Amino acid sequence: MTAYTKIAAIAAAAAFTTTAVYADGHVDRTGWPESFTVGTASQGGTYFAYGSGWANLVAEELGLSGSGEVTGGPMQNMALVHTGEAQFGMTTMGPAAESLQGTNPIAPGLQMTNACAMFPMYQTPFSVTALSASGISSISDIPDGARIGFGPAGSTSDTYFPRMMEELGVNFERRNGGWSDLGGQLQDGLLDVIAFAAGVPVPAVSQLEVQTDVNIIEFTEEEQATILAAFPVSQFEIAADTYTTLEAPARSVSMWNFAIANCDLPESLVNAVVDVVMSDNERMVNIHRAARSTLPENWDKNGVMKWHPGAAQWFIDNAGADIPADMIHGG
């Protein structure tokens, strides 16, 4: 039995009570599992807090046993949900696209088409920071061979930001580490640039601002367009009030995060799960403030994965979603 399976077994043994309308038998519960797991990521990150939160909320509302589980993150979540070892999970659009193409490093050659989109979560912006003393105030200022910190090895940041830099013609020496550690290395002159894909404000960057002068580097319109054409990302602006250093919004890109479901789960179950999460945003924001973007109108941020039929029906009925039939699993 794997560590993950052991954790799942423990979670499945936990009992939840509820007075929710979904537990009173008015919803068709044919084929519903007695318990479920949500693949998240490592403890201490947004994925674990957000995923565990909605897992517990759904469990309570639907009268099921369930919880968020520690995993290796988006790539592993795609594999776990595709195989059905986890009923639900969370992923970013980049790892989702690679998994569908069969280039997920966990199982090269396996097209993970049995993981379906369920609901939009939030955006992960890509942001670049350098010390003001370095004289680097734009991407084109980054010198050849610059030492760039890209975050933890294997993270969404580490997977995509180096490729983006290469696409923009930047030659660099790649460094990895935790957010705070890399921020300290930048301040100590051991790095030239830090390039993070993380929710903003990034605590490490906010801490740097307090201790020294930094440049929050935005993409030019041309650079942004180049990245948008080459990667599964969306336009994004880092708001001026995100950092004290910014005097105006900073042009960037972001990668959307979506909740996913095993495509074979009953439509009524997935529809009910989506309803619990999407019908009360304030409740979700109380779980994690990133959920401010967990809104029905953001259904259109998925251009990569096929929708679970139960989820698609919820967005069609409640958000006026115009989801093409060929983007719905089994359609």
Score class of each variant (00 low, 15 high):
residue 80 L to K: 09
residue 81 V to W: 10
residue 82 H to W: 03
residue 82 H to Y: 03
residue 84 G to M: 06
residue 87 Q to R: 01
residue 88 F to D: 04
residue 88 F to I: 09
residue 89 G to P: 08
residue 89 G to H: 05
residue 90 M to V: 04
residue 90 M to E: 07
residue 90 M to P: 09
residue 91 T to L: 10
residue 91 T to W: 15
residue 91 T to K: 15
residue 92 T to H: 14
residue 92 T to V: 08
residue 92 T to P: 07
residue 93 M to K: 00
residue 94 G to W: 07
residue 95 P to N: 10
residue 95 P to G: 06
residue 97 A to D: 12
residue 97 A to S: 09
residue 98 E to N: 04
residue 99 S to Q: 02
residue 99 S to T: 02
residue 99 S to G: 13
residue 100 L to Q: 08
residue 100 L to P: 02
residue 102 G to T: 12
residue 104 N to K: 01
residue 105 P to T: 04
residue 106 I to R: 14
residue 106 I to K: 15
residue 107 A to K: 08
residue 107 A to E: 08
residue 107 A to M: 06
residue 108 P to N: 00
residue 108 P to W: 01
residue 110 L to H: 12
residue 110 L to F: 11
residue 110 L to I: 11
residue 111 Q to C: 14
residue 111 Q to H: 09
residue 111 Q to I: 13
residue 111 Q to M: 12
residue 111 Q to N: 14
residue 112 M to G: 04
residue 112 M to N: 01
residue 112 M to T: 10
residue 113 T to W: 02
residue 114 N to Y: 14
residue 114 N to C: 09
residue 114 N to M: 10
residue 115 A to L: 10
residue 115 A to P: 03
residue 115 A to K: 11
residue 116 C to K: 03
residue 117 A to L: 11
residue 117 A to K: 03
residue 117 A to P: 02
residue 118 M to G: 05
residue 119 F to I: 04
residue 119 F to V: 05
residue 119 F to G: 04
residue 120 P to D: 12
residue 123 Q to M: 15
residue 123 Q to P: 06
residue 125 P to R: 03
residue 127 S to L: 13
residue 128 V to E: 04
residue 129 T to S: 01
residue 129 T to C: 03
residue 130 A to E: 04
residue 130 A to F: 02
residue 131 L to S: 15
residue 132 S to H: 09
residue 132 S to W: 10
residue 133 A to N: 09
residue 133 A to D: 08
residue 136 I to P: 01
residue 138 S to N: 06
residue 139 I to M: 06
residue 139 I to W: 01
residue 140 S to Y: 03
residue 141 D to K: 08
residue 141 D to G: 06
residue 141 D to H: 14
residue 141 D to T: 09
residue 142 I to A: 00
residue 142 I to R: 00
residue 142 I to E: 00
residue 143 P to V: 15
residue 143 P to L: 09
residue 144 D to Y: 13
residue 144 D to H: 14
residue 144 D to P: 13
